[in-house]
């Protein structure tokens, strides 16, 4: 897909998203759709570091939670508009990524993964003990009303998340197709070789970590608006960390479309199954899917598709 086509599709999706609230009456669709889009942003953000550069972030919820609480703080302190919240959250996320990266990226990937687990608990503990942010019981966030053009707050926040998703995918795609993406792929393949080729590996990893953190935190920013209530348990939820990892892995980590595919698939299934079956089985299903993909199709759906294409091509060539 060329840039022109990509932009065209993005515009079409955005337009469809804006029109949809006029057509669909039931706000539940937007309520559920918001979650799917939120995961598109999270998975896309995760993949910039985890997929392109090959550094596993288990602490996605730390970045997400930081975004949620940045927005909640801004609402409480200044009644800041949503755009300001999103930008501030992205900034905080980038900073957090930079600091975590600086502390741990100099050593091997396993330690980075462990440190990100630690980060979640540290931030959660800080929020727990902050009275201003509502401590363990959380904070009710009454956001400014939605612009009149939108049918309701849910529809509004859905459209905001749609725009964020398009921005996130655009960023990921731009990185993937540029020299930055190439350097990150080189790092994923072999760090010493990348370094010997003149790639400043530490700087590139830090950049990836910051961008990834910024995008994920951005996904958390509209949450206070969406849920009207934030608490540490949902902001730093393990499910977010799990999904952030599972979605790109299921979709495929090598290209921007993988996380999008994985997020839409997995999040939709989850939205349907939480209504129909228990949340335990939901987690079980994700766990089994994760194992199945990692063992049988480590390149995700994208890898499966590529393999299928190759096979078909070969069959054609032989006949």
């Amino acid at each position: 897909m060329s840039w022109r086509n990509f932009l065209l599709v993005a515009l079409l999706v955005a337009a469809a998203g804006m029109v949809l609230p006029r057509v669909l009456e039931n706000p539940y669709y937007f309520f559920a759709g918001y979650v799917v889009l939120q995961y598109v942003v999270i998975a896309t953000g995760w993949n910039i570091l985890g997929g392109y550069a090959g550094y596993t972030n288990f602490g996605t919820s730390a970045f997400f939670g930081a975004g949620v609480y940045t927005a909640a703080f801004l609402i409480k302190a200044f009644e800041a508009p949503l755009l300001v919240q999103v930008l501030a959250a992205a900034g905080i996320g980038m900073l957090l990524g930079l600091v975590t990266g600086y502390l741990t990226l100099r050593i091997q990937g396993v330690y980075f993964a462990i440190a990100t687990v630690a980060l979640v608990v540290v931030l959660e503990t800080v929020v727990h003990n902050s009275d201003y942010l509502g401590g363990a019981s959380g904070l009710t966030t009454i956001a400014p009303p939605a612009p009149a053009w939108f049918a309701g707050p849910t529809q509004y926040v859905f459209c905001v998340m749609l725009v964020l998703a398009l921005v996130a995918v655009g960023i990921a795609r731009a990185i993937e197709h540029s020299w930055v993406g190439r350097s990150l792929r080189a790092i994923r393949a072999s760090e010493p070789a990348a370094e010997a080729c003149g790639v400043p590996t530490l700087r590139m990893k830090l950049a990836a970590c910051a961008i990834s953190g910024g995008v994920i935190a951005m996904a958390g920013a509209p949450y206070p608006y969406y849920a009207s209530h934030v608490d540490p348990l949902s902001a730093f939820s393990l499910t977010i960390g799990l999904n952030a990892l599972a979605m790109p892995l299921i979709g495929g980590t090598r290209s921007w479309i993988g996380p999008v595919l994985g997020a839409v698939l997995l999040a939709s299934v989850q939205q349907i199954t939480t209504v129909t079956i228990s949340s335990e089985f939901n987690i079980l299903a994700v766990g089994l899917m994760l194992i199945a993909f990692v063992v049988l199709a480590p390149e995700g759906i994208l890898g499966l598709v590529a393999e299928l294409r190759e096979r078909v091509g070969r069959r054609r060539a032989t006949t």
Partner: peptide, 18 residues
């Protein structure tokens, strides 16, 4: 230590970027 996930020519583009 080839850069896997890339074509041969892209392998050479990595150092060229700098």
């Amino acid at each position: 230590r080839p850069f896997t996930g890339m074509s041969v020519i892209e392998n050479l583009l990595v150092p060229m970027d700098y």
